[in-house]
Amino acid sequence: MTELVYWLDMAGVIVFALSGVILACRSQMDPFGMLVLAAVTGIGGGTLRDLVLGVRPVFWVADPTYLWVILATVGLSVVGFHYIHRLSRVFLPVADAFGLALFTVIGAHKALQLEAPGVVAVLMGLLTGVAGGMMRDLLARRVPMVLRQEVYATASIAGGITYVVLFALEAPWVLTISLALSMTLGLRLAAIHWHLSLPVFAWVEIAPPAPAEGDAGRGDTTSPSVRTKARVRMIRQKRGRSGPGDRHDEE
């Protein structure tokens, strides 16, 4: 199982590094900018995870192969720049979804191997999955995916819970990894395809009720405090297909 987890981790680094390269190309960065975004996305989440768990040294210091993989990914991307530039805009969120699923499982697995509680393992899976992408988006001056209304962190949490529960039940490790990956990836891809989103809370102004016909000439007799309470309320609503972050993607 250790070897499989290692290769899954390496695959996650490649996919996330590629997503960083794609975003760097769309942001018109030079090769060094591509390398920075690729490295931050590929190893940023895992670095924070190891620091929180007290793992010394962090994984890419103990095994520099991760750095060489990132360099190779960026190098091949520079050579094939024209092909990457032609990729559809849906490719970035899809690649990010695969990286999210892989890193969620890796983060939860590593925490459990260090005998961390289940809730900590779920949080470490979430941190590993979303932190690198958050840093990538912030460096590219985009609203991070995890902060948008789309189903993103929820998918990671669901995958982490699936892994922790099956691990506690001592399910076969192939089944545990497969179901956890499928849970995270399935939810995220479904959110991308059908534009699923979580409800959001927004402050809106609601006009006070119009006075009755008999009160038309009497003026407004409603006290200021009553008018204030009647005009500001919190509502629960669902966003449409696009939000501020989605419009930013189209720039």
Rank of each mutant, 00 (worst) to 15 (best):
residue 195 H to E: 04
residue 52 V to P: 07
residue 41 T to C: 08
residue 65 T to A: 06
residue 80 G to R: 15
residue 27 S to G: 06
residue 98 F to D: 00
residue 175 L to E: 05
residue 43 I to N: 03
residue 88 S to Q: 11
residue 66 Y to W: 03
residue 112 L to V: 07
residue 47 T to L: 10
residue 100 L to A: 10
residue 53 L to S: 12
residue 72 A to D: 05
residue 147 L to P: 00
residue 118 G to C: 00
residue 155 A to P: 10
residue 17 A to Y: 07
residue 219 G to N: 08
residue 126 L to V: 13
residue 216 A to V: 09
residue 72 A to L: 15
residue 218 R to C: 03
residue 40 V to R: 02
residue 114 L to P: 02
residue 173 W to S: 07
residue 94 V to C: 09
residue 149 Q to K: 14
residue 138 L to D: 09
residue 227 R to M: 11
residue 74 V to T: 10
residue 247 R to Q: 08
residue 103 F to R: 00
residue 112 L to G: 02
residue 77 S to H: 11
residue 163 Y to W: 14
residue 41 T to Q: 05
residue 164 V to T: 13
residue 206 I to G: 03
residue 244 P to H: 07
residue 205 E to I: 02
residue 117 P to Y: 00
residue 142 R to S: 08
residue 20 G to F: 02
residue 178 S to G: 12
residue 37 L to A: 02
residue 109 H to A: 11
residue 156 S to M: 15
residue 166 L to G: 07
residue 163 Y to V: 08
residue 149 Q to F: 04
residue 29 M to Q: 15
residue 198 L to V: 13
residue 110 K to N: 04
residue 124 M to T: 01
residue 34 M to P: 01
residue 130 V to F: 07
residue 187 L to H: 12
residue 198 L to N: 10
residue 240 G to V: 14
residue 137 D to P: 04
residue 224 P to W: 10
residue 238 K to P: 02
